[in-house]
Every structure is written in structure tokens, then in C-alpha cells.
Amino acid sequence: MVEDFILETKGLTKEFAGFTAVRDVDLRVRRGSIHALIGPNGAGKTTCFNLLTKFLPPTRGAIAYNGRDITSMAPADVARLGLIRSFQISAVFPHLTGMENVRVALQRHRGDNFDFWRSKKVLDDLNGRAMALLEDVGLTEFADVTAVEMPYGRKRALEIATTLALDPEMMLLDEPMAGMGHEDIEKVVELIRRVSANRTVLMVEHNLNVVANLSDTITVLTRGQILAEGDYATVSANPEVQQAYLGASHG
């Protein structure tokens, strides 16, 4: 069987002033899968995301997306290829409303937005779609609320709606459920499952129930290196993984 990987890294390494945060990572994400990246605090998960989306330049190694080398591409251009990330610390536009947040993403489909002489009323066409996206994440009542006024869990939901607005081929979610209550977590799990139908999801998540429940493949990272990889049963049975998790944190 020929395996189809949408994202592939070779020897990906990031050093910060002599400290190696990510070491020789060969990560392969299968197209259409939900892939979880887990590991104790400080394992290098967020750094990996920053490398994959080119927010940080790798010290060594190569990244290929859809068979194309993106190692020296600019972050906005990586996003334009359909690889959209979220951030660990919620990334919304604080003083824009829920609707405006999502609309900023929808504006991308207009191509360049340098038309400073045109009224923003031309964007009203996007409102219906923006509302539908907000509804999808349970934010209907928050359409006119500025993001800064939303509870933390809602901000995370808004961030997912904004990411989905670009209809990305692949989404990188950095702890999308952190800080959410039990009910919201279930909603977001459902949402991720639903939207992953025609796209690839790579997510960092500490909640192992969620990981077990959602992911097709799990990669365990410790001290910047891949420790184990496989489905939940395989990975959780690995004694080294159990050791790493018990040794580093209780979560």
C-alpha cells in the first residue's frame, strides 16, 4: 500500500543558544488523518509547530508539505498553501467582534485586500458565511461581542472558527481545548471530528482522553525527540512512554 503523507519532516532540529528544543524529528502525517503530538511540558511540541509553519527557522532539517519543500518559505506563504495553525495562547483579534474576527479570515478569499478606497460594506457578503461558522462553534450570541470580553473557552472556539474560515487543507491546533470546561471540550471534540472529514489535523493535546478518542496516530515527544509513535493502544502500552509521563508530569 502506498502511503500518502501530506506533511513530512526529515531531521528537523531547532537549537536555542546551545539548547536543543527539537532534535532530529522525522514526522510524517498521513493525509486525512487526525494526528496527535503529545509529550510532557517543554518537550518541544510548540516549537515543532513554529518550525512547521515557519514562524521559526529550523537549525537543520527539511520540511515538505504536499511533496513541496517549504523549509525556506515565509510563514504567510505556508499559510497560503493551506496549512493553517492556531496558537497555544489563544490568538484572537481582541478588540474586534466575533463576527469581525472570522471575517478577517474570510477576506483572504478576496485575494489581495489593498483596496483602501472601497467601503468595507463590500465585505457584508461574507457575513452569512461568518455567522454560519460562528454557529458551528456555538458562538451565535457572541457575534457582536468583542473577543476580549469573551470567556477563555469562547476565545478558543472563536479561534477554531477563524481557522476553519480559511477551509484549510491541514490544521495545526496547539492545545485547542486548554482552559475549556467539560461540555465545551465535548463540543470541540465533535467539531474537530466533523471538520476533519475532508482535511488533515495535527494537534497538540494534554488531555489523553481526548487524544485516545480522536486521533488515528500519536507521536510522543520528549526532550525534543520522538519517543514513540502509533495508535493509542500501541503508544500507551509502551513502557518508555509511561515512564516519561509519570516522570515528568501528572496530567
Binding site: 510563514p75 504567510a76 492556531s86 478577517v104
Partner: peptide, 15 residues
């Protein structure tokens, strides 16, 4: 305004 509010996020959306 999006850039003013959160430039990394605007970049991550492809701007």
C-alpha cells in the same frame, strides 16, 4: 486593524 491586534495571527491566516 487585524495586524494591530495580533500580527502573528494575521500572518498565520496567510496575510
Amino acid at each position: 486593524k487585524a495586524i494591530r491586534e495580533n500580527e502573528p495571527r494575521a500572518i498565520s491566516l496567510g496575510y
